[in-house]
């Protein structure tokens, strides 16, 4: 979710098989630089595989280029890596959020499982509670929110969306990314 000179990304913590909850400590957001974040929803094994794969690719990029990867560059890396598996895809729908290193402008985008990028200037949603999240974000989001308002908005949007979805919830992680500060908060949420 985009704010004024800041960006936020949040996920729930549930891991389940159909209706059975296996774990309520399975974060889906991964950090790939000072201000680059990736959220992954979908098949749990592919969430781990894909996050590990990008950790490897981003580490190699940093060694080669001697600088951190920019969110827009990372988004194109995600897109091309997913399309490499066009006919046997990873079953994930990623979301990238970050701040452009030069301008400090917020950047967010989403993907389908074969890497088609969906750019947005307001918010991106993904996962089993997609419909609920669209509703919450559509009604709560407004342009140019500061970091505190953005935290409140994204948290309320996520928490209320997952409470209407049987397959997600059980706690949440929220990251607020600012120019020279990243704040990570754990929301307990409903545990039922």
């Amino acid at each position: 979710m985009v704010g004024k000179d800041c960006v936020a990304i949040a996920c729930d913590l549930r891991l389940g098989l159909q209706a059975l909850t296996v774990s309520n400590n399975f974060p889906k957001i991964f950090q790939y630089g000072d201000q680059v974040f990736l959220g992954l929803t979908g098949l749990a094994t592919d969430v781990s595989t894909v996050s590990d794969l990008f950790r490897y690719k981003v580490n190699m990029y940093r060694l080669r280029e001697e600088r951190h990867i920019a969110p827009r560059t990372f988004a194109n890396l995600v897109s091309s890596s997913l399309y490499e598996r066009r006919f046997g895809p990873y079953f994930v729908s990623p979301v990238v959020a970050g701040l452009e290193p030069k301008t400090g402008q917020p950047f967010i985008c989403g993907f389908d499982s074969i890497g088609c990028i969906d750019f947005a200037k307001d918010f991106i949603v993904s996962g089993t509670a997609t419909e609920q999240l669209f509703g919450m974000c559509e009604s709560l989001w407004e342009p140019d929110m500061g970091p505190d308002a953005l935290f409140e908005t994204i948290s309320q949007a996520l928490l209320n969306a997952v409470d209407r979805d049987a397959l997600s919830g059980w706690g949440a992680h929220v990251y607020i990314v600012e120019k020279d500060k990243v704040t990570k908060r754990l929301l307990k949420g409903r545990q039922d």
Binding site: L15, L17, V22, S23, N25, F26, L43, A44, T45, S48
Partner: peptide, 14 residues
């Protein structure tokens, strides 16, 4: 906890 799809989860009990 690890299943045949290679989903890995650290858990207190399983």
């Amino acid at each position: 906890w690890l299943d045949y799809l290679a989903s890995l989860a650290p858990v207190p009990y399983a």
